[in-house]
Every structure is written in structure tokens, then in C-alpha cells.
Simulated assay, not measured.
Amino acid sequence: MRVLLLALVLGACAAPDPAATAEPGVADTPDAEPISEPGFNAEAWMEAVEAATNDPDRVVLSAQLLDAVDWRTACGEDDPTAEGRGVVRLLHLSPTESLAEITCQRFDRQSTFALVDARAGRPPRLIRALGVLEDGTLSADTTASFFGVVSHDPATAPSRFDVLTTSAGHGGCGTDTHYRLLAGGGAAVEQIRAHDDCDEPLAPEDWPVVYPDE
């Protein structure tokens, strides 16, 4: 018994420090949560999503994805009647990387949504990242829920995606967060622009960079 306890203590002491390998200037998060489901064919599922022509069909396809990864984790209280609930679309970040955006609830200009790493060749993973507060600062906690409008430009920013969150109807204030998809799962926050004075609206490209500090 003494030998076993000593081995456990030595093993704990030898565990690597995750902070020691963190990339400077990038807010990394723990790996996303893989749920292995050998029967799920990601490539065939993505082809079906691309071929879908209406929202009811897209909702059926997001329900099929639940067999592999429970994206409802990102939606908080389970409300199957929420506007736009379960509508899925694909964002191809690069020739080998794709995200499934699944709506939790749709509003006039933006939505609450989950993101799933749906690349072919491995089980889907629910994307988690550090939360972004209204003033553009990073939360200490990770989240699987995103709010706003997600976009990407594979030609100029492969493996990256943006989430624009507006705080007023005119869209002149809010946060614009740039993320990088991590190879092992999850996403890192690379840059945040923020403008919280809604009485003095600015275009998002004119919002000041608040992360990282310059």
C-alpha cells in the first residue's frame, strides 16, 4: 500500500503544467468534448446538410447529429419551441475544416448558437472557447454558447472564424471576436474589438482592439 501511495504522489508531481505550453498572446481553452460514435458518418451528414433546401430538413439533420454530439449543451434550458431552434448550416473554414452552426434561438439580427467541429475523419466535437463579456474582456470560464452572427473568410483566414455581437438595433456598438480553431478541439480567442457607447455608433471595423492589449 505504501508503494502504491508513493507512486500516485510521484505521478501527480510529474504532471505537466498546461500553462507552460500556452501560446503567448492567445487565449487557449481546454480541448472540446469528443463523443465517440463510430456509426456517425460526418462526410455523408455534411453532404446532406449542403443539399438541404429548407429549415425543417435542416432541423431533422441537427437532430441526427445528437447521436454523435449533444449540441443542446450550448443552448441552456431546453426549449424546442424557440424560434429557429435546430436549424443547421455549414461553414467551411478550409478544405479540411468545417463547422456546423446550430441555432439555439433566432432573434431579429442575430442568434444564440452552438458550433460543432464537423470535419470528416473523426467524431464531431462541441466547440468551447473562453467567454467574451459585453465590454470585450475575457471571462475566466469557457462556454459552448455563442451569440451574434458568425462569419469566416477561408481565402484570407483559414482555420479562423469571427463572431459579431451587436448591442443595439443599429449595430453600431458591441463586440467583434476573432477565433482560431484548435487542432485538438475548441477555439482560441485571438482578437477582440469592442465599442460600448451605443449613443456614438461606429462601424465594427472602426471599433478599437481591446484584446490583446497593445
Rank of each mutant, 00 (worst) to 15 (best):
A12H: 13
R119Q: 14
R119N: 02
S159L: 11
D31G: 12
L164H: 11
E214I: 04
G136Y: 08
D79W: 01
E77C: 05
R85L: 01
S167N: 13
S167F: 15
D79R: 00
V88E: 06
T137Q: 14
L90S: 08
R180E: 15
G169C: 05
P95G: 10
E23Y: 10
L66N: 02
Q105E: 13
H152Q: 10
L5T: 09
E37W: 03
S167M: 15
H152I: 05
V87C: 01
D153H: 05
V9Y: 13
A68V: 01
E205M: 09
L90W: 05
G184K: 10
T143D: 04
P38W: 00
L130A: 06
L138S: 12
T142A: 12
D17Y: 07
A144H: 13
L138P: 10
L91H: 13
L10R: 06
V209F: 06
F147H: 14
P208A: 10
L181E: 06
V209C: 02
A114R: 07
A194C: 02
N54M: 08
S167E: 11
D213E: 15
R89E: 15
E97S: 14
P16A: 10
E97G: 06
P34D: 08
R72E: 02
C104V: 00
A157K: 12
A32T: 10
R193K: 15
L91E: 07
G25D: 02
C75M: 02
G148H: 06
V87Y: 00
R72N: 02
V9D: 09
A42D: 04
G84K: 05
Y179P: 01
D176P: 03
S145L: 07
